[in-house]
Simulated scan of single mutants.
Amino acid sequence: MNQRKIIHLATGMPEQMAYSPDKEMRTGICKKQVDETFLAKEGFQGDGVANLKYHGGPDRAVCVYPYEHYKKWNEEFDTELPMSAFGENLVVAGMLEKEVCIGDIYQVGDAVIQVTQGRNPCDTITKRTGVKGILKRMIETSYTGYLCRVLKEGTITQGAEVKLIEAHPNQVSVWFTLDLYFHRSKDVEGMKRALEVAELAEDWKHKFQTRIEKALSVAQR
């Protein structure tokens, strides 16, 4: 496994973003690199989201994306995406979705974070990058990144090492939950396994529980 470290640290408040000659939207996806910032329970200092229904909150305080995927997308779409193109705070090396598990605890600089859920991306990514088809491919591969809660506030600096403090014993990977969410909506046993992880974000617990109840209801008809 490659050394876990921050390749790019970025924050940004919501702002107007033009995505076609006559269209624009207010969004927090346009993050800019910073050398150092403070991470509080609700998120990074100087960082914010425009749509509180789908972004932000304690379970989604930190957005992480694996550095390794940038090479894949650049080659596949013949482009050169900037770091934090998808609005993530941390572009990290050595922390792929298949390697990181829900409930894992990491020290990042002086702060401590815990993985809570995979990211469910929206079409703002297409509008931000201008790359048609990339959102579809991110969902097909479940290479969407993930979100974390803050267990301990602290300062984080560009290039900091990310240390695994505690691996969750259930070993339910971020990729496993994303694959369930996007591609296996009727996999009752898989969703039950995910729900056994108490640290899973409440929103995802609700979604999986609803799907299980629906699947069981259909099976009993």
Rank of each mutant, 00 (worst) to 15 (best):
N2F: 11
N2M: 11
R4I: 06
K5V: 07
I7H: 07
L9R: 03
G12Y: 01
G12D: 03
E15Q: 14
Y19Q: 08
S20L: 07
K23S: 15
E24R: 15
E24D: 09
E24Q: 13
T27Y: 08
G28C: 06
C30H: 15
V34G: 03
E36I: 12
E36W: 08
T37A: 15
T37G: 06
K41P: 08
K41G: 10
F44R: 02
F44I: 05
G46V: 02
D47A: 05
V49P: 04
V49R: 03
L52H: 12
K53C: 11
G56T: 06
G57M: 00
G57A: 05
D59N: 11
C63K: 00
V64A: 05
Y65I: 00
P66G: 03
Y70R: 00
K71I: 11
K72L: 13
N74E: 10
N74T: 08
F77V: 04
F77Q: 04
D78E: 13
D78G: 09
E80R: 11
P82M: 09
F86D: 01
F86K: 01
L90N: 03
V91N: 09
V91H: 02
V92L: 06
A93H: 10
A93S: 13
G94Y: 00
M95A: 11
E97F: 00
E97P: 01
K98I: 11
E99L: 07
V100G: 02
G103D: 00
D110K: 08
D110M: 08
D110F: 04
D110N: 13
A111V: 04
A111Q: 05
V112M: 08
T116L: 03
G118V: 00
G118T: 02
R119P: 03
N120R: 09
D123M: 12
T124D: 12
I125V: 15
T126A: 14
K127Q: 14
R128P: 11
T129Q: 06
G130E: 05
L135H: 09
K136E: 14
R137D: 15
R137S: 10
E140I: 10
E140L: 12
E140Q: 14
T141Y: 12
T141F: 10
Y143D: 13
T144F: 00
L147I: 07
L147R: 03
L147Q: 09
C148M: 12
C148F: 01
L151Q: 05
K152L: 13
K152D: 12
I156C: 11
I156L: 09
Q158I: 12
A160P: 08
I165E: 14
E166V: 11
A167S: 12
A167F: 06
N170M: 15
V174A: 04
W175G: 00
F176A: 06
L178K: 01
L180G: 04
H183K: 07
H183R: 06
H183T: 01
K186C: 10
V188I: 12
R193C: 10
V197D: 05
E199I: 04
W204R: 02
K205N: 11
H206R: 13
K207N: 13
T210V: 12
T210A: 14
I212S: 07
S217R: 13
S217G: 15
